[in-house]
Every structure is written in structure tokens, then in C-alpha cells.
């Protein structure tokens, strides 16, 4: 009998919702109670520094290219020793969707996401963050990673002196 089955279905559903009425709501009352996000929560973007204190960013434009809403812009430049850096670096947080693609694209781990999520404001122009606002004094995640120690060939260190790097092979010595 389909009518018995249907009636049972309706009554079962109503019993389920009836039980829910007396449960404690799961909602967290936000301004009074603030939940602590996990350390890997993806919110405000920062630029981190090397363990030595230098900027990590090498202005490779990978984050800007990866950004789906095009909210990251920068300009690249080179110091005298060939080390690349960004004279200005700008993130428009009014457009940012916190997808984390920039942090994943970054080869030097310069651009990282922090759990800080409360920085909304009434003035939309104050959501455009310049390099000075973004740069922090610290390494963020993976604190001992130093890009130029691993891969900055010929710029700040001679060949074969990087971490875990073997000295360059002399091709001639391998010949029979």
C-alpha cells in the first residue's frame, strides 16, 4: 500500500524535525563568541621574510598569474647583485576570494595565508593593502626555508655551496 508508506514517510519526517526543535542550536553567536580558527585557516594574506630577515618575494608574478580574480599586482626589479625583488606589491582584499592559489603557486613561500579573518571595514579603499601593510617580521610557515640557500644560483652564493647541494661535477673527470 503506497498510502501507508507515504503517510509513514511524512510522519517520520515530522518526528525528526520535532526532535530537532528541542536541541541546542549549533550556531556560534559571532560578535560575542569568537571561534579560534585552525592555524592553516585561509584568511588574510601576508608576505613573509627569510630566516636572515630579507624579503622572500622574488617578484616572479606566479601568484598574480594564479589569482582567479586578479587582485594581486606588483612590479619586479633587480638589485645590483642580481637578486630580484618587488619595489611595490599590492593586494586588493576587496576582490580577494581567499582561494589560496597564490600561496600554492609561490615558489619561495613568500606569500602565505594567516588565520586572521576580522579585518572588514566601511571604507573599501582601505582594503587595498600595499607592500608595507603585507610584509611581516617573521617566516610564517616552514620557518627554515630559505629559497636563495636552495636555489638562488649565481646570485648570492657560488655554485655548490647551497644546502644539500653537491658541488658541480667536472665533466672531464668522468671521461674514461
Amino acid at each position: 500500500m503506497s498510502i501507508i508508506r507515504d503517510t509513514k514517510g511524512i510522519l517520520l519526517g515530522m518526528w525528526t524535525t520535532w526532535k530537532r526543535i528541542f536541541r541546542r542550536p549549533l550556531t556560534i553567536q559571532y560578535p560575542e563568541i569568537k571561534r579560534v580558527p585552525y592555524p592553516r585557516f585561509r584568511a588574510r594574506i601576508v608576505l613573509t621574510r627569510d630566516p636572515d630577515g630579507g624579503e622572500r618575494c622574488v617578484a616572479c608574478y606566479l601568484c598574480s598569474a594564479a589569482c582567479p580574480v586578479d587582485c594581486i599586482s606588483m612590479q619586479s626589479a633587480e638589485r645590483e647583485d642580481g637578486r630580484r625583488y618587488a619595489p611595490w606589491f599590492r593586494i586588493n582584499f576587496a576582490r580577494c576570494i581567499y582561494c589560496g592559489l597564490c600561496a600554492e603557486a609561490c615558489p619561495t613561500m613568500a606569500i602565505q595565508m594567516t588565520p586572521e579573518y576580522e579585518f572588514c571595514t566601511r571604507n573599501i579603499m582601505s582594503l587595498v593593502y600595499e607592500k608595507e601593510d603585507l610584509l611581516i617580521d617573521g617566516c610564517g610557515k616552514s620557518p627554515d626555508y630559505n629559497f636563495y640557500r636552495h636555489a638562488g644560483i649565481g646570485v648570492t652564493q657560488p655554485r655548490g655551496e647551497g644546502l644539500n647541494e653537491e658541488p658541480p661535477l667536472d665533466m672531464r673527470s668522468l671521461q674514461p
Binding site: 530537532r20 526543535i21 542550536p25
Partner: peptide
């Protein structure tokens, strides 16, 4: 309020 309670929210 009741709809909220049924959906476990305030």
C-alpha cells in the same frame, strides 16, 4: 524562531 530551531540555529 521555530524554523531556526528545526534547522538547529537561533
Amino acid at each position: 524562531v521555530l524554523l531556526g530551531r528545526i534547522q538547529e540555529r537561533f
